[in-house]
Every structure is written in C-alpha cells, then in structure tokens.
Design a protein around this nucleic acid. Structure first.
Lengths: 175, 175
DNA sequence: TTGATTGCAAAGCATTTGCATGCTA
DNA sequence: TAGCATGCAAATGCTTTGCAATCAA
C-alpha cells in the first residue's frame, strides 16, 4: 500500500518476462509472493516473508517462498544480503540505484547509504585487475550515533566478552 | 614454514594477553590451533583447519577448532569472511593493513585488493552519519580476467538458469 | 582446589530436496 | 496432456550446546 499500481506492474512484467524466457510458469503463489515482497519496505527473510504471505493465503508453503525468492534473485528483482546474524535477507534490487549498509552491532540499526565516489573507485579497482564486476556488497559494522559512547556499547558484558554481531528483530532502516 | 619465528611470537603474545585479560586459559589445543591457523596462507574454514590440526594432533576436536576460531576473532587476530558459498572462512587480521575481495563466480578465484582511497571514503561516509565503524567488508563478484568473455562464463547452463555463486575448492588467491 | 576447557554426542537452525499431487500452458 | 510447481516431511550441512571428564592456574 502506498505504492502506485504502476510500480507493481513494472516489476510484475519483468518477472513474467523472466519466467517466460526461462521456460517457467506463472502461478498464483509466485504472484502473491512477489506482490508481498514488493510491499515490504526494507530487507526481509524468507521466514518473515512467509509469515506475511500466510496472512493473505495460508496455504502457501515456506518452501515456495524460499524458492520464489531465489527466483526473484535470478530474475534480477531481488538481492541477498547478510548482516551477520546468520540469516539471509532479501531486498528489492533497483536496476538504477544501488546502496550499501552500515550495521550497528549494538542496537541492530541498519543504515542504507550510497556513495557514487566509492562506486567509481570500485569500478576503477576492478578494471585494474581485469575483473568484470557484476555486483558487490559493502558493509560497515560499528556503533550508530545513538549507541556510540553510550552505555549500550559494552553493557554489562565482562571485559573481553564476545562482542558478537546480533541483529535485533526491531531493526530499523534509515535512508 | 617460511615464517619468521618472531612473527609467531608476536601473535602468540597478543593471544596470551587476550586470554589473560579475559580470564581465560592457555591450552595446548589453543596454541596448536593458533599456530596452524597462522601457517595458512589465506582463508580457511573451521572444518579445513580442523583437518590440518588433526595431522599434528588427532585428538583435538572439531568443536575446539570452532571455539578457538571464534576466540581468535574476538581477540582481534582473525576475521570471518563469506564468499557466497554458505561457508564461513577465517583469515588473519593484520591490525595495520586491511584488504577487500573480488570473487570470480565462474572459477572461484579470490583476489585480495586494497584501496586507501576507498577506505578513506568509507570513513568519511560513516562520519557523515555519526557512525563509528569498527570493521567492514567489501566484496565484488563477477568474472576474472580469465573467465571474462570466455566459454566458462555461461557454460552449458540453460538460458536463465540460476547463476549461483559457487566457490571452487581449488580456490587461489592473488595479492 | 576450582572453575575453565575439552571432546563427544546430541541438538539447533536455516535451507534444500524427494516425492506424490496439483496446475499452468 | 506434459511437465513444471507445490507442499509436506525428511534430509542436509554448518554450527552450537549439554555434559562428564580433564586440565591449567
């Protein structure tokens, strides 16, 4: 909701074209999963998307969500991301723009950012190795403005305790 | 082999200091695992390191390797890396220098590179969000010079087939 | 002595696969 | 119809945990 129907159509069509060209079939499940996925603001796991899809159609299986998300990735409509909590997230892939992430290891906040300068340097770097980059991923971990210096930083963990990355469920996204 | 004893000592001491400060104990297993890990040129999985350690002392368990690698990560001597084959690799962390990766999705080649300019831009970017970055990861996927344009690119996969990242075991590292 | 460490087996988790049934093209 | 897609249950594969025995400090 809040999205123009036109946007959906565009991605819907891209997906249809992909399916057709790959000799695959269009199904109600795939349509529903794609629509639900497009409605999600930021990153989402297969499991969570499955929950959302279930609300609309409880008969759709988790396996199908997994498979469809992989399909969308291959179709170029989605991209896998990992933040360090051992889960695979998927986010919409906009052919035009790209963004990277900063992940707060204290509160789990995820900040999306974009730097044309960094992108340019990456291309330059790749070229110098004769490497043809198709996609990339840049993540910065650390402490967000709020957690920086605050008590949340080391909490009551013993000195030297394992500062493992743990992405909270209440993760928010800043753009 | 090929390493100066001095180098080992340096890391050994860092580890000892870490253990002491964290109230943990130094054991033969941990020493052996650290030494074996330092001897490895590039990235290695817990499983593979376990195999190497086993050659020297077959009584050491896989669990201990897993635990020690996590310990080394916390101690700042190792870092986790993922290339897309769903495995966790560990690589030595040099406090002074840092490097990023280009991964060939066709042959599995991993190229390590370093760009002070990119690093600088990252810091700049983080600062602009009031973010204090502790570490980061930049990976570029694509085709290396050898695979680029060559037959290996699409092989005999059907059009639209899933171009999954698959890091070959015969992975090499270029520095 | 005391509590950290180890190794084994068992448990966990996210993800994938086998297969009979259902449906698209 | 043909054969791709689905959903379920079972299987995977990597990683972690429980626990009794062992060992460092």
């Amino acid at each position: 909701m809040g999205r123009k129907a036109k946007d959906f159509d565009e991605e819907q069509i891209l997906f249809e074209n992909y399916l057709r060209s790959a000799g695959l079939r269009r199904t109600e499940q795939r349509d529903l999963i794609l629509r639900t996925f497009l409605d999600v603001g930021d990153h989402i796991t297969s499991e969570d998307l499955y929950r959302l899809v279930s609300e609309k159609d409880p008969t759709v299986g988790l396996t199908t969500v997994y498979r469809t998300l992989k399909l969308l990735t291959t179709a170029g409509l989605a991209q896998e991301v990992r933040f360090g909590d051992n889960k695979t997230y998927y986010e919409k892939l906009h052919s035009d723009e790209h963004h990277d992430h900063m992940i707060c290891t204290s509160c789990g906040l995820v900040i999306e950012f974009y730097s044309p300068d960094i992108e340019a340097l990456q291309d330059e770097m790749a070229a110098s190795f004769g490497f043809e980059a198709t996609h990339h991923s840049l993540r910065l971990w650390g402490y967000c403005a709020k957690c920086k210096g605050s008590a949340g930083k080391l909490t009551n963990a013993p000195p030297g305790a394992e500062p493992r990355v743990r992405v909270k469920s209440g993760r928010t996204v800043v753009r």
